[in-house]
C-alpha cells in the first residue's frame, strides 16, 4: 500500500498474460460460462472470430492495482467507472496502469481520483475509465 499519494503519480503497472485456461478458470469461478468465452467453435462463428476474455476479468486486474495502492480504502469506499473498448483474447499480454489525476477533500476525508487504462501488447486500449479511493492525506 502506498504511504503517500500525489497528483500526477502513476499506479501499477500490473501485468497479466491471458490464456484460454485463464478464461476457463474465470468462467468456472464466476459462473459466467457464456460460450463467447469458453466455446471456441461457437466463438469462431461470431464477429469476434474466437473466444474473448470476460470484461470482469480485465477489471479484476484494475482492482488488484487499486488494492495494492489503497488497501482497505479501495475495498470499502472505492468507486470505478469503466468502458470496455476492445476484447482481450487468449495470447494477449495485458498491462494495467493509472495516474492520479486529482486529490480532493470532502467532509474531512481525502480522495484520489485516478484515470486508468488496460492495454494489450499492441498498445490497444482494452478497458479505460476512472477510479476514486479514500486515502490518509492532509490536502485541504
Amino acid at each position: 500500500m502506498l504511504t503517500e499519494i500525489k497528483e500526477g503519480m502513476t499506479l501499477g503497472p500490473v501485468a497479466k498474460h491471458i490464456t484460454q485456461e485463464t478464461i476457463n478458470l474465470y468462467a468456472e469461478a464466476s459462473g459466467d460460462c457464456n460460450p463467447i468465452h469458453v466455446d471456441e467453435a461457437f466463438a469462431a462463428k461470431t464477429p469476434f472470430g474466437g473466444t474473448i476474455a470476460h470484461g470482469m476479468l480485465n477489471l479484476a486486474y484494475v482492482s488488484e492495482m487499486m488494492t495494492s495502492a489503497f488497501g482497505e480504502n479501495w475495498l470499502s469506499g472505492g468507486k470505478l467507472r469503466a468502458k470496455f473498448k476492445e476484447s482481450a483474447r487468449p495470447g494477449d499480454s495485458l498491462s494495467v496502469s493509472a495516474e492520479v489525476i486529482s486529490l480532493e477533500k470532502r467532509d474531512g476525508v481525502s480522495y484520489a481520483n485516478c484515470s486508468f487504462e488496460c492495454r494489450n501488447q499492441k498498445g490497444e486500449i482494452i478497458v479505460a475509465g476512472e477510479t476514486t479511493a479514500k486515502f490518509a492525506g492532509d490536502k485541504e
Binding site: Y26, A29, L75
Partner: peptide, 25 residues
Amino acid sequence: KYLRAVDGSGDGFVPPLAITACAIA
C-alpha cells in the same frame, strides 16, 4: 477459486470484483 482465476492474492476479505462477478453471472 476466484483468486486462482485472476492470479491474485488474498487479504482476508472477499475481493469486491469477486462479488460483482457473482452478480454479473
